[in-house]
Computed example of a mutant assay.
Amino acid sequence: MNNILIIEDEVKVSEVIKAYLQREGYNVHCAAKGYDGISLFNKINFQLVILDLMLPDIDGEEVCKIIREISDVHIFMLTAKVELSDKIEGLNIGADEYLTKPLSPRELTARVNALFRRVDSNKVTILSYDNGRLKIDKERRSVQVKGKYIILTPNEFDILYTLASNEGKVLSREQLIRNIYGIDFEGSDRTIDAHIKNLRKKIEDNSKVPKYIITVVKIGYKFGSIRDSKQ
């Protein structure tokens, strides 16, 4: 079941949209404030965020930027702004669709259904590297190295999948912490380093000369291999 997050301060609007989407079989969560939405996003694996730009605590544009730092989730922006420049700005900061109010909930539901039809037709559940030497199965949360299953902790898997699904993109420790632990995490960002060290021992041929999890000095980490095939 696809999870959808609605971040909208008009409760009546979010409840109507929620009702329409639930009838289509989606699992829908609502937040009336931007920071509450970000907190929910860091706790649940969402496939779509429906984001209003006019929020009481933080601009929707800022929420979009924060989410985009840690995820490539689909984002639909809802706004009363109708200027072309506003739409372009919204798309430039990471929105997939920019929808103006008032919006028919039936139209929004149709757009959501169309999105997931496209996604499901191109869905990748297993990421494979080096002719199958390393396989990461998102649905089963399992990892194989040279055909053997490797035991990872939940946090180790989340870090590995986050880096692999953001192939080639450098992620800071802070970005990884937001994605794995949420914005309320109060520990040291060096916690990530400890997990990376353990991951390298489990998946690399030589943990001192890694080919998958690459350190980018003074910035963070990136995934250093290319998928066997783009699916």
Results as ranks from 00 to 15, higher is better:
Val119Tyr: 14
Val119His: 11
Ile159Ala: 04
Leu171Trp: 01
Gly147Pro: 05
Ile136Asp: 02
Arg117Ser: 03
Tyr129Phe: 15
Lys146Asp: 15
Ile126Gly: 11
Glu174Lys: 14
Asn155Cys: 07
Ile151Pro: 08
Ile159Thr: 05
Ile150Thr: 06
Gln175Val: 01
Pro105Ser: 11
Val170Gly: 01
Arg106Tyr: 08
Leu160Glu: 03
Glu174Ser: 12
Thr125His: 12
Ile151Gln: 13
Tyr129Thr: 07
Leu115Met: 14
Val124Tyr: 03
Val112Asp: 05
Val124Met: 14
Ser128Pro: 13
Val170Asp: 07
Phe116Asn: 08
Ile159Arg: 09
Asn155Ile: 14
Glu167Pro: 00
Tyr149Phe: 14
Tyr129Asp: 08
Arg141Gly: 00
Asn166Ala: 06
Leu160Pro: 06
Gly147His: 06
Glu139Pro: 00
Arg111Asn: 05
Leu127Val: 04
Leu160Trp: 08
Arg140Glu: 13
Ile151Leu: 12
Val145Phe: 05
Val124Pro: 01
Arg106Ser: 13
Leu160Ile: 05
Phe116His: 11
Val143Glu: 08
Leu134Pro: 11
Val143Gly: 03
Arg133Phe: 02
Asn113Trp: 06
Val119Phe: 14
Arg133Glu: 07
Ile136Arg: 01
Arg106Pro: 00
Ser142Leu: 03
Ser121Trp: 00
Asp130Ile: 03
Tyr161Trp: 11
Thr125Cys: 12
Pro154Asn: 01
Asp120His: 15
Glu174Phe: 09
Pro154Met: 08
Asn155Trp: 06
Ala114Met: 10
Arg117Ala: 06
Asn131Cys: 02
Ala110Asp: 13
Glu174Cys: 04
Asp120Asn: 15
Gly132Asn: 11
Glu139Lys: 15
Ile151Trp: 00
Arg141Lys: 15
Ile177Thr: 04
Lys146Gln: 14
Glu174Pro: 04
Asp137Phe: 00
Asp137Met: 01
Lys169Arg: 15
Tyr129Pro: 09
Leu176Asn: 02
Asp158Arg: 11
